[in-house]
Amino acid sequence: MDTAIARSRLETMLAEADRSIRVLRGEHPERELSASDAGADLYDSDRVQAALDSLGRHRAGVLAALERIEEGTYGQCQGCGEQVPEGRLEARPDAARCVTCQSKHDRAMR
C-alpha cells in the first residue's frame, strides 16, 4: 500500500478514535449518584470504560502504524519480517503483522 494513502487513512482513523473518546468522556462525566441510579450508572460506567479501553488500544495501534511509516518499516510484519499482504493493509491499515503471525500473537495473548 502506498504510504501516503496509508498515512491519510490512519490519520482519519486517529481523528475518529479521538472524537469517539471525547464523546464517551463528555457523555459520562463524573457526577454524584442517587441510590436508585447507582446500579444502572455503574453498569453504564463499566460499558463506557470498556469502550474507552478498546478505543485506547485501537488508537495506540494507529499511532504505532504512523510511527512505522516514519521509520520506513510500514508493511513489514513484526512477527516474521515478511511483507504484510496488500489486501490486509487495505482492510486494516494499522495491521502490524501478517494474518499467520497475528493469529499466533492473539493465541499467545490469551
Rank of each mutant, 00 (worst) to 15 (best):
Y43P: 00
S103P: 00
A38P: 13
A40F: 08
R88N: 07
R88L: 08
D106H: 09
A17C: 11
S54W: 00
M109Q: 13
A17H: 01
G75S: 08
A95W: 02
R97C: 01
A15C: 05
A6F: 01
S54A: 14
A96V: 00
G26N: 11
V23P: 02
T12Q: 15
E11V: 08
G75H: 04
G79M: 07
G56V: 03
G61W: 00
P85V: 06
D53G: 12
G39R: 15
C80K: 09
G87W: 03
V48E: 00
E71R: 12
S36H: 09
Q76R: 14
A65M: 02
A108F: 08
R59Q: 15
C98M: 04
C77R: 04
R31P: 02
R47F: 07
L24T: 03
G61K: 03
A51S: 13
V62M: 08
A40E: 15
V62Q: 03
A108G: 01
T73I: 06
L14S: 12
D37R: 09
Q78W: 01
R25V: 04
L33S: 13
D53T: 12
P29S: 06
T100E: 09
R57Q: 11
M13T: 03
G87R: 10
S36W: 06
D106Y: 05
R9N: 07
R31M: 07
G61R: 05
D94P: 00
E82K: 15
L14M: 13
E70P: 08
V99S: 07
D94T: 06
A96H: 01
E70I: 08
A51H: 04
Y43S: 13
V23M: 13
L66V: 09
Q102Y: 03
G39Q: 13
E30P: 02
R59D: 10
H28F: 15
V23I: 13
S54D: 10
R25W: 02
R68H: 09
L66M: 11
D106L: 07
P85G: 07
R47P: 00
M13E: 15
L52W: 02
V99T: 09
Q76F: 04
C98W: 02
T12G: 11
L52S: 02
R59F: 05
R47D: 04
D18F: 06
A15M: 06
Q78G: 14
E86Y: 12
A35H: 10
S103T: 14
A64F: 01
L52V: 05
A96R: 04
T73D: 10
S103W: 06
G75L: 05
I69M: 07
R9G: 03
A40R: 12
V84A: 02
C101D: 15
R22Y: 05
P29G: 06
A51G: 02
L55W: 01
A50L: 13
A15L: 08
A50V: 11
P85R: 07
A108H: 12
Y74F: 10
H105E: 05
M1V: 08
Q102C: 03
P29I: 12
A4P: 02
A60G: 09
R19P: 00
D44M: 11
A50K: 15
